[in-house]
Amino acid sequence: MGLFKRNPFGHILFVKKWLIRILGALTHRRFRGFNELQIDGSEIIKTLPDTNVLFISNHQTYFADVVAMFHVFNASLSGRVDSIKNVGYLWNPKLNIYYVAAKETMKAGLLPKILAYVGSISIERTWRAEGKEVNRQVKMSDISNIGKALDDGWVITFPQGTTTPFKPIRKGTAHIIKRYKPVVVPIVIDGFRRSFDKKGLRIKKKNILQTFEIKEPLDIDYDNETTEDIVKKIEYAIEQHPSFLKVIPQKELEVQEELNKKRKWKT
């Protein structure tokens, strides 16, 4: 790799590699130390092609969710199964991983700007800006940038566009799937909202079980399924369909509470 080789967005890969190494070393204990990240399905990562893969996930914090994915993906590619033990897997990280994020979020301070260099595809939200509801047209340059990233590697997106659970899936994700025909891999996370503040930068509570489930790629008929069909598949795949909202019986809650006690990370 040439010292000044760049990716399609103009980022110097040598700089990006060192940022991933440093940030990875600084954040490792957030998922294996202060809290315990329980991973399931990481063997799927090694079976994926090197490009045109779209990861879809529910969203709990601005940054911790993506950071955890960088850890899990690179650990899996280095041969670890459902584990991020020993951060050495970040010495040679996969450099063509990108994630979709709101432009205003990635410009809000020095750290977000650094995180943006690591792999952000910054887009303008069509429904919200500066804390207010808006209604504006999708920028075609944002869509083409996502396509450019898929052509170069893997893209992470949060199709609800918010950290609030059970919000509707944005149809833009379905349009991207129909247009670029990527391998679509669902991920379901939990525990991040309890572990971190909303931004995912500050540890709010320790000894929390964080879960990270990677599911088999979705079976999608790109040409014949409608965007509505794909939206529904996404809702179920990332467990954000309204049917997942239910009243849990008291007995089940008590059993769950006992399990949570056993799951606490023991030092």
Rank of each mutant, 00 (worst) to 15 (best):
P168R: 04
Y117N: 06
I114D: 03
F63D: 08
L201W: 07
W154E: 03
E213C: 09
N135F: 13
R32Y: 13
R6E: 14
R179G: 01
N207H: 07
K262C: 12
P186N: 11
A149Q: 03
E104L: 05
T164Y: 05
Q137E: 13
V138W: 01
Q60I: 04
K107W: 07
G131I: 00
I203R: 02
T211S: 13
I45S: 08
P182R: 00
F9H: 13
S57N: 11
W127R: 12
Y222W: 06
G109V: 02
G147E: 15
G161D: 08
E133W: 07
Y89I: 10
K139H: 15
L253G: 12
S42W: 11
S144T: 15
D40T: 12
N260K: 08
E133N: 13
P93I: 04
N260T: 09
R32E: 15
E213F: 05
H11M: 02
I169P: 01
I238V: 11
Y99L: 04
F55G: 10
T173R: 00
S141C: 09
K103L: 12
D65M: 06
N52M: 03
T227L: 00
T211D: 10
D197A: 06
E254N: 13
I248D: 08
G131Y: 01
V183G: 07
L26E: 04
N74C: 15
D190G: 14
R30G: 12
K132I: 08
T126G: 11
W18E: 14
L95N: 03
E254T: 10
L201Q: 12
K181L: 05
D142K: 10
P159V: 02
Q210W: 04
G161W: 01
G33A: 10
V185F: 01
L245R: 13
F55W: 09
T162Y: 00
Y222P: 00
P49C: 08
S42L: 12
K178H: 00
E254P: 06
W91V: 14
R263L: 14
M140C: 05
A102D: 14
L3V: 05
I84Y: 10
K266G: 13
R263W: 11
Y117R: 02
K148A: 14
I123D: 06
V184M: 02
K107P: 06
E130I: 01
E124S: 14
M69P: 00
V53Q: 08
R21L: 14
A116I: 04
K262W: 15
I146E: 01
L48H: 05
R263S: 10
L110C: 09
F63W: 09
G109R: 01
I187R: 04
L13V: 06
F212Y: 13
I146D: 01
L150T: 02
A116K: 06
I248M: 11
R29I: 10
L37E: 07
R21E: 14
V72K: 01
K5Y: 02
F73I: 15
N96S: 09
G172D: 07
A108N: 12
I146V: 15
N96A: 07
G79N: 06
I220F: 03
